[in-house]
Lab assay of single mutants.
Amino acid sequence: TTTITTTNEEDARRIATEWKNKGYTVHVEKRGTTFRIEVR
């Protein structure tokens, strides 16, 4: 599992989409101002 964190919502969406397009399972969680993107 790879975890990526960013405070930028646009980055979070872009990163999540990129990983999904590669065939990975992506889970995005917002904690306060931080977005945690888990890639499996």
Rank of each mutant, 00 (worst) to 15 (best):
I15T: 04
K30C: 12
T2F: 15
A16M: 08
T3W: 14
H27R: 10
N8F: 05
V26R: 00
V26H: 00
W19P: 00
E18I: 10
G23E: 02
R14T: 06
D11M: 10
G32N: 05
A16Y: 08
T34L: 14
T7M: 10
R14P: 00
R36H: 15
I37A: 00
R36W: 15
E38W: 10
I15D: 00
G32Q: 04
K20F: 11
T2N: 08
H27L: 12
G32Y: 04
T7N: 12
G32R: 03
R13W: 14
T2Q: 11
V39L: 07
G23K: 02
Y24S: 02
I4Y: 14
G23F: 02
T5H: 10
T5I: 15
T6C: 13
R31S: 12
G32D: 08
K22P: 00
V28T: 05
D11V: 09
E10T: 09
T2W: 15
T5L: 14
T5W: 15
E9L: 11
H27E: 07
T1N: 09
T7G: 08
N21H: 07
G23W: 01
A12D: 00
H27T: 14
N8P: 01
T5V: 13
T1Q: 09
T2I: 15
E38P: 00
T1G: 10
V26E: 00
E29N: 06
V26A: 03
G23S: 02
R14S: 06
I4H: 06
E29A: 07
A16E: 08
R13N: 11
V28H: 01
T25G: 05
D11L: 11
H27Q: 08
T33H: 12
I4L: 08
T25I: 14
V26S: 01
N8W: 04
R36V: 15
V28G: 00
K30M: 09
W19V: 03
E29T: 14
T25V: 12
T25P: 04
T1V: 15
K30V: 10
I15W: 06
N21M: 11
W19Y: 12
R36Y: 15
W19C: 03
R31Q: 13
T33I: 11
T25M: 12
T34A: 09
T5N: 07
T33A: 12
T1L: 13
Y24I: 02
E18Q: 08
A12G: 02
N8T: 08
N21C: 10
N21G: 07
Y24A: 04
F35V: 06
V28R: 01
G23P: 00
T2R: 14
E10K: 09
R14Q: 07
E9H: 07
G23M: 02
E18W: 14
T5G: 03
N21Q: 10
E18H: 13
D11Y: 10
V26F: 01
T7F: 10
I15M: 05
K22M: 10
R31G: 05
R36A: 11
R31I: 15
I37D: 01
K22R: 12
A12M: 08
R40N: 09
E18N: 07
R36T: 14
T7E: 13
E10S: 09
T34I: 14
T3N: 06
Y24R: 03
V28A: 02
D11G: 04
I37N: 00
K30N: 06
T33R: 09
R13M: 13
F35D: 01
E9A: 11
A16V: 11
K20E: 13
E9K: 08
V39W: 04
A12K: 01
T3D: 04
H27V: 13
I37G: 00
K30Y: 07
T17G: 08
I4F: 15
W19E: 02
V26T: 04
K20R: 14
K20W: 09
E10D: 11
T3V: 15
I4D: 01
E38T: 15
N21S: 10
N8H: 06
V39R: 03
F35N: 02
T5D: 07
K20T: 12
F35T: 04
K30E: 05
V39C: 06
T6Q: 02
H27M: 10
T5E: 13
I15A: 03
H27W: 11
E29D: 07
G23C: 05
T17P: 00
E9M: 08
E18S: 07
